[in-house]
Nucleic acid binder design. Structure first.
Lengths: 197, 197
DNA sequence: CAACAATGTAGTCTATGACAACAATGCTGT
DNA sequence: ACAGCATTGTTGTCATAGACTACATTGTTG
């Protein structure tokens, strides 16, 4: 946007941003390094200076995705006030929103996490999940959730939210049923988790 | 395996079977029509007679996947006896087993379901999900689950199971934690769902 | 300002998916 | 039996992609 000297200046960023758009609009499969280069106005070999191969671009995309996801989750939780249930619902809704708006990106994020050795992606993922863990800890402190390792308790919650997102992006539930389903799920979770139910 | 007259005889099946293997071993991205043709021993143009394009092959793969998934779920439920909880656990475990053994295939199945117009895939999917619905109905009849539309109640359960599978294939939980997580999740579901908890 | 590193360009190779023209096989009705 | 036709495979071609190399341009630093 700023200018484009014959050294582009920030090709890496430009490529990542355009890539994220393309992934959102047309899916990962349609993402081509050459087309990306054309879109950004550089030659077909230029991206190679920033991403050794296509997979490296996808990994970087995933890492950026985790950072944005973490930010959105935190923003949702913080914007929902102090009460646990409100924060829980807001965070779950934010996750599902991300997952439905950027379904392919999220898929990429999950796929990359298990293959990767470079810790950068894992760290970004951990930062994103930390929001959920903190939420669990708050719930436990308030007595709304049973005690125990937050990782373990949070996993069921996380799985459910992720599953709901998958059902929506998979077309198994309509967008209209989403709120109802989310409410049901958080309800089950809270009732099932209270110590002496 | 049988023989190969110059008309292969059942190219379509052979392609699908080899494709399923390749997807399981090396992922969807590495699936190439031409390589498939080579593997099966036909020329690179032959698959076109059975699948107009690559996507058609993937759709057929997804449909076959739903049929197998349905069969495995039903077999698991039926093999677990009469008791509801045992059937529930067995079915959930069977789903997760499928989802982890054939993660990429499952992804394909979900992806295809939402884009497709031809009802064949949807019908296969519905047959698979019917197993879960029947399970819910049994739970309701026995009073273990709250009343209401089985579709709605089942959705939360299904989402949770699907989410657990996603967490495992995504490398967020280790295979060793799987049993524990599944037990936690079904526990939450049952406690959260009992009418007068 | 002279090396040197970083970044971009141009050309090439191999593989793929899609398509068309053609060949071989199987089937059907008479 | 067999002529005509539909199925199914084969071969060749085209456009495009990813990966790699040699080379050019720009920026930086001693």
């Amino acid at each position: 946007m700023t200018e484009r000297p014959y050294h582009h200046g920030n090709l890496r960023m430009a490529l990542l941003e355009q890539a994220e758009r393309t992934v959102r609009d047309r899916g990962v499969q349609d993402l081509s390094l050459r087309e990306l280069a054309r879109d950004v106005g550089v030659s077909h070999g230029a991206p190679r200076r920033h991403f050794p191969d296509r997979q490296a671009l996808l990994d970087a995309l995933a890492e950026a995705g985790f950072e944005r996801l973490g930010a959105e989750l935190r923003s949702a939780a913080d914007g929902a006030g102090e009460e646990f249930q409100a924060r829980l619902r807001a965070t779950a809704a934010a996750y599902v929103r991300f997952a439905t708006r950027d379904a392919e990106l999220l898929e990429l994020m999950f796929a990359g996490k298990h293959r990767e050795q470079s810790g950068a992606l894992h760290e970004a993922a951990d930062r994103a999940f930390a929001v959920i863990l903190e939420l669990i800890e708050q719930g436990q402190a308030e007595g709304a959730l049973e005690r125990g390792e937050p990782e373990r308790v949070g996993l069921v919650l996380f799985a459910t939210i992720q599953g709901i997102a998958a059902l929506v992006t998979g077309g198994i539930v309509q967008a209209g049923q989403l709120d109802e389903l989310l409410a049901d799920a958080t309800g089950y979770f809270l009732r099932g988790s209270r110590i002496a139910a």
